[in-house]
Amino acid sequence: MNRELYMETIIRLNCALDLERKAVGVKFLHTEEEYQLAAAKTITEPINYCVMVRLATQGRATKAIGNNLACLAGARALGLKEIDAYHRSGQNGKKLGLYNDMPTAKRTRDGMSYCDHQAFGIMVKPLEDYDSEPDVVIIVSTPYNIMRIVQGYSYYNGMQSNFKMTGNQAVCSESTAYPYLSNDINASLLCIGTRHQAGWSDHELAVGFPIGLFTKIVDGIMNTVNIMENNQKKEVIEKKLLANGIGELKIKYDFNYYR
């Protein structure tokens, strides 16, 4: 990893968007040795994976194995716990009342993304804390900022026509496993479990994408500032760019595609 370029990309992201939370990196730790060497605090009491993500958005770095996670659905989605036949069949979703009938529960379960590896553990921490690349980037923010991230993606990649969302298993499956397995971006409306357990605000959404898309997404956001943003937002962005010594973007006021 070119750390200088990596850190500059994080700065550019934070200049272009008004993020109240830190962008998060997720890394699968496939061996016990990787886990022991990972620079993060081991979870001492069981918590949900989505809570680990929320802690990272607040600047805290944590790591966990499957037995550390209070939410077994999250552990299964991340490939830290084996999926049993009961859950694979959709019976659990039907029993919980998430779906009207078994065919719907089974079809939904089959469509959800569950990592098929058997990882030893997982690490979640702010993007800037990584010395080597994480696997997946997660950003939890306002609908406006998620829109701008998708627009940044679309600048180079066009339409993502395969968004997956059910309003369930939002952080573990929709925001982590699916971007990792598909090597593509996914937006999530979050879910009631993570909203209660991790305490996200009602106005927050999530987006996840593989680290390989990070630089191009941020480039896309930067390249669409002038045609997307209004003068008020442009003024804030320009001040942040100048404060960070980034002069690549010439801000054009009274200029955007919808005027």
Rank of each mutant, 00 (worst) to 15 (best):
M1F: 04
L5Y: 15
L5Q: 10
L5E: 08
Y6R: 11
T9V: 13
I10T: 12
I11P: 07
R12Q: 04
R12N: 13
K22I: 10
F28C: 09
E32L: 06
E45K: 08
E45D: 14
E45G: 01
I47L: 10
C50K: 05
V51E: 00
V51G: 02
V53E: 02
A56P: 00
T57W: 14
G59M: 05
G59E: 05
G59N: 02
I65G: 11
I65N: 04
I65E: 06
G66T: 01
N67L: 08
N67K: 05
L69V: 14
C71S: 11
L72V: 03
A73F: 08
G74N: 00
G74H: 00
R76W: 00
L78N: 08
D84E: 15
N92Y: 06
G93R: 04
Y99K: 02
D101A: 13
T104D: 07
G111I: 08
G111R: 01
Y114I: 04
Y114E: 12
Q118V: 14
I122W: 01
I122S: 00
M123Y: 08
D129G: 15
D129E: 03
Y130I: 09
Y130L: 03
D131H: 02
D131V: 12
D135G: 05
D135K: 09
V136Q: 10
I139F: 07
I139D: 12
T142S: 05
N145W: 06
M147Y: 09
R148G: 10
I149W: 00
V150T: 05
Q151R: 11
G152S: 01
Y153R: 05
Y155M: 13
Y155K: 09
N157G: 09
Q160N: 06
Q160E: 10
N162L: 07
N162V: 15
C172N: 12
T176G: 06
P179Y: 05
L181D: 00
I185S: 00
I185G: 01
L189F: 15
L189P: 15
L189A: 02
L189G: 15
R195P: 12
R195D: 10
A198D: 03
A198N: 10
W200T: 11
S201T: 08
E204C: 05
A206G: 03
A206Y: 04
V207N: 07
V207A: 06
F209C: 02
I211R: 11
I211P: 14
K216I: 13
D219L: 03
I221K: 01
M222P: 11
N223A: 13
T224S: 15
N226A: 11
N226L: 05
E229W: 12
N230M: 12
K233C: 10
K233A: 05
K239W: 07
K239N: 07
K240A: 09
L241G: 14
N244G: 13
I246M: 04
G247I: 14
G247A: 04
E248T: 11
L249W: 11
I251L: 07
Y253S: 05
Y257F: 12
R259W: 08
